[in-house]
Amino acid sequence: MQKKKNKIETKRLNFFYGDHQALFDNDLSIEANKITAVIGPSGCGKSTHLRVYNRIFELHRGQRAEGEVFIDGKDILDPGIDLLDLRRRVGMIFQKPTPFPMSVFDNVAYPIRLHFKASQKEIAERVENALRGAALWDEVKDKLRESGQALSGGQQQRLCIARAIAAEPEILLMDEPTSAIDPVGTLKIEELMDRLRERFTIVIVTHNMQQASRISDTTAFFYKGSIVEVGPTKLIFTNPRNKLTEDYVSGRFG
């Protein structure tokens, strides 16, 4: 039985790209309203693991997941699950910002119009709230009608966060959300995440060890498709149990 406070509970998750197995028996518990950092060398399966939580991998032919992933106690790998509702509840931020070719306002309104019956006034309110929630409102309130693609990279990423928040998710998955963003923009997003943790369960993939130790509560270290060690971030970075983890967090390989 799953413990109540775990938002996500992964059991013996295996993942295949055609014949190539990328994840091996992943077991991972993710606590609600915490930030969990997923770290590990390039190609170890971090993105692959994250992309199971909202079943986004199903866009691509030949990719399949085996095992169980419980979200709020329900196995989301069950074929009978409502995929569109799952994805509303589990938002995702990608490495490269992907503003839609439409105005800032319409970008954020997109998921609202998609999922909620809201009047024009309610939509406008929700857009503003989401933009405030993503710490972007002050910068864009005078250019809501301008193209979302005309913003700076960091602003585009926060626009994507606002758009994800607007769907009112419970979980936010972030796959290297700041690796394409300059240091100032990165700092803003990190501050933002610290505030978002109150409302959402956040899982973030990062290559930046400082970032992981600064913002996360729990850290999971992946290596060659397996989860080597999971624990409180402080412990992972100061006193890891596993030699591989120690070598990785101390920068001896990566």
């Binding site: 866009l59 569109l84 990608f94 992907t98 998609l114």
Partner: peptide, 17 residues
């Protein structure tokens, strides 16, 4: 690019929509 498609699906939009 698939990036745009994935970010749409990730919001809960259907393929057709």
């Amino acid at each position: 690019g698939d990036a745009l498609r994935e970010s749409l699906l990730a919001l809960g939009a259907s393929r057709a929509r």
